[in-house]
Amino acid sequence: MLETRRSLPEDVTYLAPRLRDADLRELQAAGSAGAEQSLQDGVRLSKDCITIINEDDKPVAMFGVCPSFEIDVGYVWFLGSDEIKQNKTRFLRHSKRWMETLHQDFPVLTNFVDQRNTAHLLWLRWLGFKFLRTVNALGPGNLPFYEFVRISNV
């Protein structure tokens, strides 16, 4: 069973060492300072940062939207643990509702995803995101990332 609540600082400390390997590889490829710093930045920069918790009130994922310099555009992000897999159906069912909530403040949601992160690619496509172009990340190896976007019905 998964529920959501506003993120707390201790969520970062708990979740950072539990992130999926694919998420950790993506952070590294993007040139991130690491899991804990990325989650702290997410809490600090997002309009609203949300934590997905399990039945024991333990974080299994965090997500949010960071405002861009362009009006109505937000950079959506999501980092999670392998525990998401144990609640896949419930997670997918709620994902569409969460996206609609994020769209209330940002009609355009966008960001970049590591081409190797197949779980995120499938999930983003299922949520209705479109892939625009391939860019090379700034991190080690200049690995390819897809730019993706979802525009709400306005």
Results as ranks from 00 to 15, higher is better:
68 S>T: 15
72 D>W: 02
72 D>Q: 06
7 S>Q: 13
5 R>L: 03
11 D>M: 11
80 G>I: 08
64 G>W: 04
16 A>D: 04
115 Q>Y: 02
17 P>L: 09
2 L>I: 14
110 T>C: 12
61 A>Q: 01
83 E>L: 02
100 E>I: 00
72 D>R: 05
103 H>M: 09
135 V>I: 15
6 R>F: 10
66 C>A: 11
20 R>C: 05
58 K>V: 04
128 G>N: 01
119 A>H: 02
106 F>W: 05
28 Q>L: 13
21 D>Y: 11
148 F>T: 02
132 L>R: 14
115 Q>M: 14
56 D>L: 08
23 D>H: 14
97 R>E: 08
74 G>W: 08
9 P>C: 13
73 V>R: 13
154 V>C: 06
136 N>T: 03
110 T>H: 11
21 D>E: 15
52 I>T: 07
119 A>G: 05
71 I>W: 04
147 E>Y: 03
92 L>C: 05
28 Q>T: 10
147 E>P: 01
145 F>N: 05
143 L>S: 07
9 P>M: 13
100 E>Q: 12
136 N>M: 03
132 L>K: 13
85 K>E: 12
96 K>W: 02
85 K>F: 13
74 G>N: 06
115 Q>D: 04
149 V>E: 09
152 S>C: 08
153 N>E: 10
14 Y>V: 07
91 F>M: 07
23 D>M: 15
111 N>D: 15
24 L>F: 07
63 F>K: 05
56 D>I: 00
45 L>G: 07
110 T>I: 09
76 V>D: 04
106 F>Q: 04
71 I>M: 11
106 F>N: 06
31 G>T: 08
20 R>Q: 12
43 V>W: 15
135 V>Y: 08
29 A>L: 08
96 K>N: 02
7 S>H: 11
53 I>C: 09
7 S>P: 10
22 A>W: 00
40 Q>D: 06
33 A>T: 07
23 D>P: 15
125 R>D: 13
124 L>C: 06
116 R>T: 09
81 S>D: 07
59 P>N: 01
123 W>D: 01
18 R>M: 10
38 S>F: 08
153 N>S: 09
9 P>V: 14
52 I>F: 06
151 I>K: 07
19 L>T: 09
144 P>G: 03
138 L>F: 03
63 F>N: 06
106 F>S: 03
85 K>D: 14
60 V>D: 00
137 A>C: 14
94 H>L: 10
73 V>T: 13
29 A>Q: 06
86 Q>N: 12
64 G>L: 09
51 T>D: 05
112 F>T: 14
125 R>G: 02
89 T>W: 00
42 G>Y: 14
81 S>M: 06
24 L>K: 15
97 R>I: 04
33 A>N: 10
46 S>R: 10
8 L>R: 15
71 I>P: 06
62 M>I: 15
140 P>L: 09
33 A>V: 04
6 R>G: 10
102 L>E: 00
85 K>T: 07
